[in-house]
Amino acid sequence: MRPILTAFASGLLLLWSSGIVRAQFSSAASQSDHLALAKKDLLADSSRYFYNPRPLMPGTAVMNLGISLSLLPEPLVEQEIPAPAIDFQYKRGLTNSLSFYATVSTNYFTNVLMPGIQYNGGDDGLSYAIGNGIAFFAGYIDLGGEFDRNSAAAIADVPILRVGHHFEQVAVSLSLACTYVLYADTHIGSLEDKGIKYKVDDVWLTLAFEQPFYGQTRISTGMSLTYSRTPYQIWMLYNVFDQYLVIPEFFFSFQL
């Protein structure tokens, strides 16, 4: 658990540091002016970010397209291997407090679709969200050798909690989620393994930074740490180790 605690500590450090920054800015304008301006800009500005949990204006949407890179557990794959994937993310405001979100992640062999609904609250500075998604996972690989007609499918419930802070130039958010497996099935050739069911398979923590990069182009960057017994990224390898491992994942996406 130490890496996750470290990540939490780092997130808190960032939030703490933001307090200093906000204090510096609040001296330049009156508190009431600041709040009024913030309220006016809130919905319009927040529509730009996917991870930040500030409420979205109803009917507005944000889309991200990018890549992620997971470092596969070395004991399982016996060497250092980063696994890439293409990520697409979509969020749309349904009401002032509710938004719909969906993520798609694929590297051809491993595919995850997760739609969900989240409730958003907070102000222009600190905001939060609580949501729930259903993850549909499908994988197929047939390259011979270790990867001889391997396939897997799973459905999981994914509750998520997000906390975010909007700075002058950047929105920082921390998300905590877990994967509760509802259905799982793995086939290796003609052999079948039902795998885990009605169990929490993993817990993951995501730290995201969203900010302008050049011109009006904005980016989302950050990392996730997944604490998992059976990391989905290596579903095609039979994991025989009865131990939870931490899998780091880095992501980088452009806002469309």
Binding site: T6, L245, V246, P248
Partner: peptide, 11 residues
């Protein structure tokens, strides 16, 4: 830092 902490993916 986390990636390099060494303890993350070790058994």
């Amino acid at each position: 830092v986390l990636l390099n902490s060494g303890c993350m993916t070790e058994l």
